[in-house]
Design a protein around this nucleic acid. Sequence first.
DNA 1: CTGAAAGCGCTTACAG
DNA 2: CTGAAAGCGCTTACAG
Lengths: 361, 361
Amino acid sequence: MVRARGANVAAGPTLAVVAREAGVSVPTASKVVNGREDVAPETRRRVTEALDRLGYVRRPRFAGAPALVDLVLHSLDSSRSGAVLSGVEAAAYEAGLEVVVSAAPARGRDARPEQGWLDKLAARGSAGVLFHPAELSAAQYAWLDHHRIPYVLIDPVCEPPAGVVSVGAANWQGGVSATGHLLELGHERIGVIAGQRCTMAGEARPAGYRSALASAGVRYRAEYVRHTDAGEAGARLRTHELLDLPEPPTALFACSDRMALGVYAALAEREVRVPQEMSVVGFDDLPEARWTAPALTTVRQPLAEMAATALRLLVRMTHGERPEGTRTELSTRLVRRASTAPPPAVRPAAHGPVTAQRPTV
Amino acid sequence: MVRARGANVAAGPTLAVVAREAGVSVPTASKVVNGREDVAPETRRRVTEALDRLGYVRRPRFAGAPALVDLVLHSLDSSRSGAVLSGVEAAAYEAGLEVVVSAAPARGRDARPEQGWLDKLAARGSAGVLFHPAELSAAQYAWLDHHRIPYVLIDPVCEPPAGVVSVGAANWQGGVSATGHLLELGHERIGVIAGQRCTMAGEARPAGYRSALASAGVRYRAEYVRHTDAGEAGARLRTHELLDLPEPPTALFACSDRMALGVYAALAEREVRVPQEMSVVGFDDLPEARWTAPALTTVRQPLAEMAATALRLLVRMTHGERPEGTRTELSTRLVRRASTAPPPAVRPAAHGPVTAQRPTV
DNA sequence: CTGAAAGCGCTTACAG
DNA sequence: CTGAAAGCGCTTACAG
């Protein structure tokens, strides 16, 4: 029984090497690595600089033990998390790393949520942390920087602070392809159910919609774009609003698959048939998109690949490298299924208010 | 910034203590712990015995670093895995442990799949391993035993070898409640789409069906029970077979939610409406069961709780305890949704072959 | 705030 | 096959 020992870890410098390089003793270097307070700022700077330059990584417990990387998920039990975990694990395996998974501290199960697991990271000597979706406070970012633990955000909800490395999807481009698909089918009255205003997805996806409209020379109507922050339930309400418009849309672009579920619910309540009377496009391509009836045409977000990319970035940061750009975007692509079709009939372009052209029961 | 150091790890004995107890030197005890071959059988026995009695656990790398437990999943990206991960993580958090997640080696990405990650486990000093669903070879069981790494199987597919600790669901009881529900609604002709013959679920769930029929005094008909090992596709075929019977069932018990999806597909092909013309009950209560139209009545398997229970069992084994029983079963419960209803009409009990009473298009 | 000294819990040669 | 000896990469007092 041959044991592959130490084959997967390129031996970096020891603390002793770093200390010599920085011109300090090993105990002092140790203090810096462990984020202790009792180190002079100038000394800390010198040591930190040496740590970075040499790409110091804490030695694993025993020869052959793989280094550990942390993946912090908001919810462990969702299809998004499954895809992320799967991408991270595969890439970690390639890199000879193992991944420790934990739930985000926001869970409220700890008196001091923002510290509990952060302490563990440091104590264990995590090589780096991946967050999805990211919900870090400024204090937490500072803490990680202070402890020299590199981190990457996977598909962050909001625009991360300057300098923070993240991997996301090409949201704008996805908005363009979703809308382009509907335009090609002949739709001109396209409603949008968009996510929260401050979020990246909530802004970039409808922006892509607007751009697609512009290049096709189709008029943009503000009343066709509705933002909501209540997910499925919110999307249901907004859909009813759009259906109540004097000139309702013939197609709906829901900026997430979850919101598309809410759209479906509203349409079912009005007995509007998909896709005969209304086309629907989602965004994400969660497994759910295949279970719905009819199966949802949607924009696929390559979550697993995004996660794998984030891990590779993290590994490079672990070795002291800095990625050139701070944000990486992976392209999205349209997945045509059964929820889209040409509009019910070609009607003359409507000018001014008209009555609803579809029975609303 | 106060740091909680070592608060979560009850300090067990060091290797030195164990060695003294066993009457050997520390290096020798170290060899046993690391599964080296060059130890006399009698010496190994003495050391192993001391390790077990004292509940030796390798010290974490640094004070305050939590011990690590491994979770090995067959697929990282499935709703079942999500539930399992979530249960394990929550219970691990309670116990002050962290969980390393990896994909089962069967993935074929390693030349020697059965050794690659097993080596890592040992090198890293895993406190124990949880498998779901378990697919261990006899050699792997032996290897884990040899390395004194405790392990627990979460919802194993097949009956595990004697002495292996596992946590599962009360499959038989679930079969009873699914069938009981249909009987209460007035169904007497109940078909069963069952899983693979050799598996625990494939045997116990239809056995529960049979028992429920017996207690209700309803005749058991062998032709109503169809086994398949092809999941969704297999279930679809078997459903067509049942519909082609001279006296087809008025209700179907699919022994898994995935198979229920296949049943739905077959019924849609025949334009048999659920639940008006056919009631359907599933088993598992995956998230998918809520997306289907109509929402699936099913037997809920408490996967997260099963996973949490497995972790707690593992922790006790880690401390040298042995659970009393080798198999723990958590009870299941029926979740009524929209796929079940009374049979189409009360018909006189049929004797002898009759023609199909439902239009098959 | 710093670092020489002692110590930790192990592992690794290697001599017998 | 065994264990005294040396060593690993750190950490922890603690004296200055």
